[in-house]
């Protein structure tokens, strides 16, 4: 079975590197992007099985990326995990409004992240 492909989007390079390392250790293929525009482009180009999307991104914020993908017939099926350092209720609600499937607050528990990825990919 082919490896599941995850698009990991965050402007913090070190974090991206480390999460990538973990995901690869758990046998996922990881594509990375560091701003909103790049994330949207790569999502459309690579058609990943799941997207981990930070909210505060340069060029275009995570909500907008999420909304554009969820409102596009071709990509709406791709599960999206919103990834944010702002543990505010409004963020969670906004995430749900734009159609995000899950929501993870930084700093995160690695097990929780992995469990959610697994659950969403299996569901899809």
């Amino acid at each position: 079975m082919a490896k599941k492909r995850i698009l990991l989007v965050d402007d913090e390079h070190e974090l991206v590197e480390m999460v990538k390392m973990r995901l690869e250790a758990y046998d996922y293929e990881v594509i990375t992007a560091f701003d909103g525009q790049e994330a949207l482009d790569k999502a459309k180009l690579e058609k990943p099985d799941l997207i981990i999307l930070d909210i505060m991104l340069p060029k275009m914020d995570g909500y907008k990326v999420c909304r554009m993908l969820k409102f596009d017939e071709k990509f709406r099926k791709i599960p999206i995990i919103m990834f944010t350092a702002r543990a505010q209720m409004t963020d969670k609600e906004l995430g749900e409004q734009v159609g995000a499937d899950e929501y993870i607050i930084k700093p995160f528990e690695p097990e929780v992240l992995l469990a959610k990825i697994k659950e969403l990919i299996n569901k899809a």
């Binding site: 974090l15 973990r22 702002r86 930084k106 700093p107 995160f108």
Partner: peptide
């Protein structure tokens, strides 16, 4: 909160 959490998450993920 964002600025504190980001380094914290990097550190935590590193240690993890």
């Amino acid at each position: 909160s964002h600025e504190l959490r980001t380094p914290l998450s990097i550190t935590k993920e590193g240690i993890s």
